[in-house]
């Protein structure tokens, strides 16, 4: 089976100096929830931004469904950035319209169904919501697209444990064997149970790529534990 996401010698240098990604070779398949794990500054966000077409590779290439990121791939890639990215003056209703206008694969009824579980009014503006609610709403909008690849950049950073559980459950409940889900985070212990596969990024290079269960069986340790050893300061 062809990889849904493939990097070949992918390199990204900022201002010609620091390599945020340094000749990365990586292949990820559909039907998996993959953890893109690394400390701050290891290149996680740069990799995702390259995959969604926000950044251009300095060297090498990245392919999504066999194609270079662009208009065609964007129609099948759902992206949750690591910070608020939607206009804060918009209401939930308006955001649903926005997603429907922008994305052919947006499933409004699925979004509404997920929103029902939230304590949220459809005419409430983003800026009137708590951080936890904003995070949940943005995740719901992202996961309500019937995409081939989902990139979730730090989806559980800075939220309380109840919101974190909600977010992880939402990702599990939307699991689809045709799609690839990539979750970047440095909060390994929290996401570990939902991952099929882990990719460790260290200084812009792949330090490890392995099936999560195999890694636990081989090392007799949790992914979190192995992570702490690899990235010991």
């Amino acid at each position: 089976m062809a990889a849904v996401l493939e990097c070949r010698g992918l390199t990204k240098t900022y201002r010609g100096k620091i390599a945020a990604l340094d000749h990365v070779d990586l292949k990820l398949d559909a039907g998996k929830i993959v953890g893109l794990l690394g400390p701050n500054g290891s290149g996680k966000t740069t990799l995702i931004k390259t995959a969604v077409g926000l950044l251009k590779p300095s060297e090498g290439e990245i392919l999504v469904g066999g194609l270079k990121p662009g208009k065609v791939t964007k129609a099948h890639v759902a992206y949750l950035p690591d910070r608020d990215f939607l206009p804060s003056y918009m209401t939930t209703d308006q955001l649903l319209d926005l997603y429907q206008d922008f994305y052919k694969d947006f499933n409004r009824s699925k979004a509404l169904e997920m929103l029902q579980g939230l304590d949220l009014k459809l005419n409430q503006k983003m800026k009137e919501m708590s951080k936890g609610t904003r995070e949940k709403l943005q995740l719901i909008l992202t996961m309500s697209r019937e995409a081939a690849v989902y990139f979730l950049d730090e989806p559980i950073a800075g939220v309380d444990p109840a919101v974190r559980d909600y977010i992880l459950r939402t990702i599990i409940s939307n699991y689809n064997e045709q799609a690839l889900v990539v979750i970047s985070t440095h909060l390994i212990a929290d996401v570990e149970p939902i991952l099929d596969e882990v990719v460790f990024l260290k200084n812009g290079k792949i330090a490890l790529q392995q099936d999560a269960e195999d890694l636990r069986a081989e090392t007799g340790k949790s992914v979190d534990h192995v992570f702490r050893e690899v990235f010991k300061c």
């Binding site: 039907g31 998996k32 929830i33 559980d165 992880l168 459950r169 599990i172 409940s173 699991y175 149970p193 939902i194 991952l195 099929d196 999560a212 269960e213």
Partner: peptide, 14 residues
């Protein structure tokens, strides 16, 4: 499988 995975908080493939 899906409901159990959600209850346990684990990956559906697991």
């Amino acid at each position: 499988v899906r409901d159990l995975a959600m209850e346990a908080g684990v990956n559906p493939n697991t």
